[in-house]
Nucleic acid binder design. Structure first.
Lengths: 239, 239
DNA sequence: TGACCATGGTTGTCTATACAAGGTAAGCTG
DNA sequence: CAGCTTACCTTGTATAGACAACCATGGTCA
């Protein structure tokens, strides 16, 4: 009834585990040379294709570095970049078990002024859609979302019911997301932001600016203001 | 002299690209069924092992979902979590081509008071090391790093020359990093922080709290204050 | 000595074949 | 009609053999 996975596991997996075990125990340090495919063929009694798959997958996973004509080596640990996940605010709030609500402040069709045109890398007066929402957690405002969207990429944007679908989720459907850029800053809110988030103008805001690409075009630029006293971004990470 | 990669690329890659092109163009939507291995064998004139490698790698990459006995299907796009990389500040500054400098403000051995003990999940009065550094970019302070380290995990911590190795880099070597947690907030600086970062107390700070695990123990808790006017966290992301 | 070349080990790719196991659907049987 | 069986297609794994490209080494030749 036990898993007994070790004895029935596919051969290529057993080879992978053997190598991972030797690395994990410190027996094979970074840059140490691991057995070649032919050596694994002999010691495990498997075919070369099986040994190749084990080593190739470990290479794809970044565990090994392979050099044609030379050998396979334990990769240097990198891991000095720690990803922090930035998620949809509605998901986050609901996942915490809190009540989520959104107010639609504005939604309109606009033409890009100079600064916006620069953000989007388009000509001035290009048609954009603008929406402004406030997201609430248990009745308290936690995010002001000011978003501009390239009209040609999401022609139905102004008809979306944002109380049911967040702009972010809608855009994922409408325009296949290919790249995103985030910039995080701490700022003081302007008068309108402070009013929308029910905060004092001396209280700091966590500002996330998110730009998303679809194909070669910048599909959307969003400015997300969060009251510093009521919102924090957090994430855990395992290398 | 041109790449001519398409004509010399390995067969399994050509098959992968064919499938990715059909997905990228929207011709094959999510949950659409892609050709089976045997169909690819016929249409591309490759062996089944080659078709298998193409489909298997796309499955490993999350592009396809394969079900034994049924077929291979275009995966649903998830990507509503956007990782933001948090990197070592020294690397970041040097990579921008700016001059990096660090001042060591304090370094000492301390005993955990109640709140610190709670952060570390250890008993009060457990021995910790404390260091306080200010990181400069082109002569302007951009980060105040207040760090506590579990003494038993890094006994040499106080002897490290922080002008040559950042605490973060040293800890990676000393205690294998297994997990990290980040919390980002916007706050107003206290008097000491404002003084160290040469900023006004009314100016907001971007605060990153980083906790790192090594094994089951919390190895380090770092509070990183950045002046809102001079520092921003940014990152790009391709799904 | 220095430049060239042959050799053998290594990774990278590809084929043809085989068996096993999961799943579906048609057809048979009671 | 319900339930079972069977055939077929699918993915998953594994093998033996083959050729190409890469690289270090050592030997040969000028």
């Amino acid at each position: 009834m036990s898993k007994a996975a070790a004895s029935v596991a596919p051969l290529y997996l057993r080879v992978k585990r053997h190598i991972l075990a030797n690395i994990g125990s410190g027996k094979w340090a970074p840059s140490h040379r691991v057995p070649s495919e032919n050596e694994l063929v002999k010691s495990f009694g498997v075919s070369r294709m099986t040994a190749n798959r084990a080593l190739r997958e470990l290479s794809d996973e970044g565990v090994l570095v392979r050099v044609a004509g030379v050998g396979s080596f334990v990769a240097e640990p990198k891991a000095r970049a720690h990803p922090l996940e930035i998620r949809s605010i509605a998901d986050e709030i609901r996942e915490r078990g809190a009540v989520y609500r959104v107010d639609v402040i504005e939604r309109e069709r606009v033409r890009a002024v100079a600064s916006l045109a620069e953000d989007f890398r388009v000509a001035p007066r290009t048609e954009l859609f603008y929406s402004s929402l406030v997201h609430f957690e248990d009745g308290r405002p936690v995010q002001l979302e000011d978003r501009y969207v390239l009209a040609s990429l999401a022609p139905d944007y102004l008809d979306v019911d944002f109380t049911r679908v967040t702009p972010h989720d809608y855009l994922i459907e409408a325009a296949p997301l290919q790249e995103a850029e985030h910039v995080l800053r701490a700022v003081l809110p302007d008068a309108r932001t402070a009013r929308c988030l029910a905060m004092k103008r001396t209280e700091p805001c966590l500002l996330v600016v998110r730009r998303t690409w679809s194909g070669n075009a910048i599909a959307s630029v969003a400015k997300l203001h969060h009251p510093g006293s009521r919102y924090e971004l957090s994430g855990r990470f395992r290398p």
